[in-house]
Design a protein around this nucleic acid. Structure first.
Lengths: 230, 230
DNA sequence: ATCAAACCATACAACAGTGTTGATTAGTTG
DNA sequence: CAACTAATCAACACTGTTGTATGGTTTGAT
């Protein structure tokens, strides 16, 4: 009854193609992403999402039992995209030698992704951290696992606490956009700020912030007795 | 002008001592903190806060015009406490030489604070980042300013981007508890995890994560041409 | 004793949000 | 094409929230 007519292909418009569950579900998810990106997790209401998806509220509840489920599903989608953006297609990932991993590229991909999806990225981050989904999130696993194996090579500094470092870099990358967003208007500026962050992470990774020779005591404490942790 | 009556400092009891606006306001704020710490920013309702403070809802609205005001006031309180915990009493802070600043102590204080107030700390962090309060927050200013001055001394590595580093360390410190909270039950464990984070930050600051001699190309890129930013 | 301010009780308007249900309707299958 | 199943919808019931208003009560101060 409503707007069945001329629906040319290239529109990512509201295509109320009646009866296509897959598509409907995807439309709802897409709308959820838009809402989340705009209003954040707490600004999301099922009503708003449904309306944006051109779908009845009840329909949304049929695809996602609860509001929280919808948010979880979105976070999972983000995790997928993030994995893909950083590590490529899961099928293609041959888990090749750690030595071959381009550390700098990995970090740059993360930062770019975070910069392009600031709100969604943060939502994913906290969704993963709250309610220990950390261990089951594909991206997080892969990142940490790579890092861990890397830490055992000759390329890495000794005595690193990889779990701390993973959290530090990931959290930093996904919160940096919140810092930067005030000054970044154009896409160009955003890329510049992303570049700036990437660069500093790289510099920090190579040289730290302190000249070790000026801090012999601290250096001894850190390089000395190692308190082992699982 | 304020604090006229016999108001001995050290009582933090729920004293329904009628007629003491100052104290009522403080009771409301304290309740707000409790609620925020438990249910997060979006879980806070004025009704709940008022009830917890043993105060009528209307009274709460008399002290804080709007719900958002109440949250802002709490974030400001957190900022104060954080400043105090890290830099000491603002009155006592003589802005002494940067060389005298104990970098490690500063970071440890922040991490401890974050670990003791995980939710409140995060709320402060985002309250500061969203809506560019970053430049007006006393703590953030002081931290960044110290860091900036430090970066110009001989103790620091060259070419650091202090703004990036400030965000990275602060964000990391305040999000680390979210990571750690799953495994930390006792206060002892929490302190241990805080220590673990502090230590790794220190190690990272001293040595980075990569052996620079293995990455001559990257090293060149980072130490080479410096792209200046305001 | 008087007075103003702080507090309480209560109500209300307006709205938003969640989940649920029972009826339609569109594809699909026999 | 009839029958069936599942997707979709409209509408309902309920709960909670914010902000405002009002009248009454207590308290501390002048």
């Amino acid at each position: 009854m409503r707007q069945h007519g001329a629906n040319n292909g290239m529109s990512e418009k509201r295509s109320p193609r009646r009866r296509d569950p897959e598509r409907t579900r995807e439309a709802i998810l897409e709308a959820a992403r838009e809402v989340l990106a705009q209003d954040g997790k707490e600004g999301l209401s099922v009503a708003q999402v449904a309306q944006r998806a051109g779908v009845n509220r009840g329909t949304a509840y049929q695809h996602f039992e609860t509001r929280e489920d919808l948010i979880d599903a979105t976070a999972a989608w983000v995790s997928d995209k993030l994995y893909e953006a950083v590590f490529g297609d899961p099928a293609t990932s041959d888990d090749q030698g750690v030595e071959r991993i381009d550390i700098e590229a990995v970090n740059r991909h993360i930062v770019d992704f975070a910069m392009d999806n600031p709100a969604l990225g943060r939502i994913w981050l906290f969704q993963v951290l709250s309610s220990g989904r950390r261990a089951s999130d594909a991206f997080w696993r892969q990142y940490e696992s790579n890092f861990k194996r890397f830490a055992e090579t000759e390329l890495a500094q000794p005595n690193m606490d990889v779990e701390v470092l993973s959290l530090l870099f990931i959290a930093g990358a996904f919160i940096w956009p919140a810092w930067a967003r005030s000054s970044a208007r154009t896409a160009k500026q955003r890329r510049e700020l992303a570049e700036r962050f990437s660069r500093e992470i790289l510099r920090l990774s190579l040289h730290g912030t302190l000249r070790p020779e000026k801090y012999p005591d601290l250096d001894a404490r850190v390089s000395g007795r190692r308190k082992k942790r699982s």
